[in-house]
Design a protein around this nucleic acid. Structure first.
Lengths: 210, 210, 210, 210
DNA sequence: GATGAATGAGAATTCATTCAT
DNA sequence: CATGAATGAATTCTCATTCAT
């Protein structure tokens, strides 16, 4: 489905190479977050990374490969965070504690570079993003679903998959919108609480008031 | 405030001109929805519209002007729908009826061209979109807030502004994600129900189960 | 030699037509003088003339025809002025009087629209201007030469053609430069005097100091 | 002050780059001289330079930057020539020798590419040329004025600034007109002599006949 | 005749990508 | 491996000119 199937650039084995790749990805984050997608030209990225374009193409077959790698990295982080918070070991926590941890975790990920996540989010990336985003969503939803099933909280929903989907999308979008639009007269902490409440009431029966 | 302030292209007086403008906007919708933002070059739009680029530039000072016009048009539609549904005359309806109407209304707007709305939504448009999107959000939230205050439903939230913001973002994003990702094993009607439930439980105390 | 040989638009016989042609030429002068050659698009000219482009093309086969007509008109005026001042009837005047009259005459022509004359002068107009400018120059030089020969002032030059050429170019350029650059600390009258002196000393023997 | 302030294209460090820049400038001279300003499109320049447009834009932010660079280069040359000829060391020369040197110097500069200088001169270049041309004129006039004051020739004019202005404009324009129009029956050398005489009689008292 | 909507060739400029050094 | 000069396809936009109404 992806338009460009690159001839798989040599995975960097040496430390210096690894550093270069990181520099490029970090530079891309910086540029995307501060200057937007349009400004993220290969030249600009290379410049911010302190690397020549030649070198950039040593490690990435084409521009999209950089964006893809970045997306992958962020998805990885998000998945890891979710997995961590929703691990079996945490089943003992109260639902509120758990949901709060997830929302705060997501907020943490987004807060570093909200502009980046605007771009990475479902609506932004163009090339073959659909599949990748879908895969990520599926995975995250799975994690949530598993947790929901394992939990012994009094769930309101029968269709846990749908519930996981709805809950995740609602949290993701509201969190991002908050970071990008800062609704007036609302501290971030307040919003976190609102979102937690939104999800809790939706998922759990008789969720205690905060 | 916007970067490009066009020398105000001639407002079309003749019928033919009006038709051309419509053709261009409609073509843009088509292209954006099916081929994405990147494919929406002026040439492609003109081609799909069955119009010469010259004509395109007769009515739109530059590419962004087309996108802006489109955004304005869609925002207008959305606002109108919300205003309609949340009008004072509808205070008598049950909360569930009202929320359902809103969600269905939004679904209706998005369903025609989900790809378009992906682009038009907060994360997509680049040029000076921020202000415009923000203005739209503010307006919608105001409408919601007004309704919440006027309603005599047993509201759970004290901060109605925050509530309006969270509710709207949650509905918008989840609806859009649904249309774009066609979540597994869920008909659109099911999703509508889920979203309605999400919002209802969040906003209203003791909302009766469906 | 000219690239475009137009199918000779119908010479306007009616008064209204003549007025339209004038309006177009005058508008062109205005635009050229104030906004420069680049701004002198057919649309802009028509707009300033208060005429539709369609009408513009009714009277001028193409854009260049307008500029050519204008050039012709200005050349005509300049030639007429020279012819007038250097007519046989004026042989009685003192050389200083005559030269002053010429310089003032030129100043008068240029002063109305210096920007226009920058464009019309030798260096400006592009299309087939060379021949036309050359013809004009030749004609003017002829007029000057004839006068010089008829005059009984004590001429210093043997080669009257060369003298006429040099004198004319010097006056023309200095006058134009003056109007365009507003040289520091020099009123227009001072410059006229300087130029008169320049030419007089060059052409006439023992020309009396001012 | 100029409308376009370019993001300072990379100054060429490597030898090849320097060669490319030169090729572009030289090609521009060629095109301007032979085909005129309108023909000097970026594509044509690149083509004549034997370089891709991409390369052209690697070194010049936009078309005007090329023309500006060229103008600067020619102005530099002209100023250097004047400064050279009118240097303090040359005060011993006779006025006729000095003026002849200046006129011949200018003739030398113009002769290589008269068409180019038609464009570069006051009337031709559009973008922000005014200031630049003015600055050049000012500088040249200063050089002349300084020389006039230092010289012990019997000057006729009190206002040396005005004299410098008039003398320079007269020489410049007449020289250029000569090269562009080749008045019939006149060798370039004759014209030089005429111009020298024009200026000498204007500036110096009792200038000896040739 | 007048109007102005439509046309499209052509110009400027960008940017991903390659490749000689 | 690194560098950065060179490339050129693709894109936006302008403007002279035509022609149906």
């Amino acid at each position: 489905m992806s338009k460009k199937r690159a001839p798989a650039r040599a995975a960097p084995r040496q430390a210096r190479a690894q550093a270069t790749v990181s520099a490029i990805l970090d530079a891309t984050v910086l540029v995307l977050d501060r200057e937007g997608l349009d400004a993220a030209t290969t030249t600009r990225i290379a410049e911010v990374a302190g690397v020549s374009i030649g070198s950039l193409y040593q490690y990435f077959a084409h521009r999209d490969a950089i964006l893809t790698a970045l997306q992958e990295r962020e998805f990885e982080r998000a998945t890891a965070m979710m997995q961590d918070v929703l691990a079996a070991g945490n089943l003992a926590r109260s639902p509120r504690e758990t949901v709060t941890a997830v929302v705060r975790g997501l907020a943490g990920l987004y807060a570093t570079a909200p502009g980046l996540h605007r771009v990475l989010a479902i609506e932004g990336l163009r090339v073959a993003a659909a599949e990748r985003v879908h895969a990520f969503d599926t995975r995250v939803i799975e994690i949530i679903e598993l947790f929901l099933r394992a939990s012994d909280a009094p769930l309101r929903r029968k269709n846990t998959q749908a519930a996981a989907f709805v809950a995740f999308q609602a949290v993701r979008a509201t969190m991002l919108a908050t970071l990008l639009e800062r609704p007036p007269g609302l501290a971030e902490d307040d919003i976190v609480e609102e979102i937690v409440d939104l999800v809790l009431r939706y998922l759990v029966d008789g969720a205690p008031e905060p």
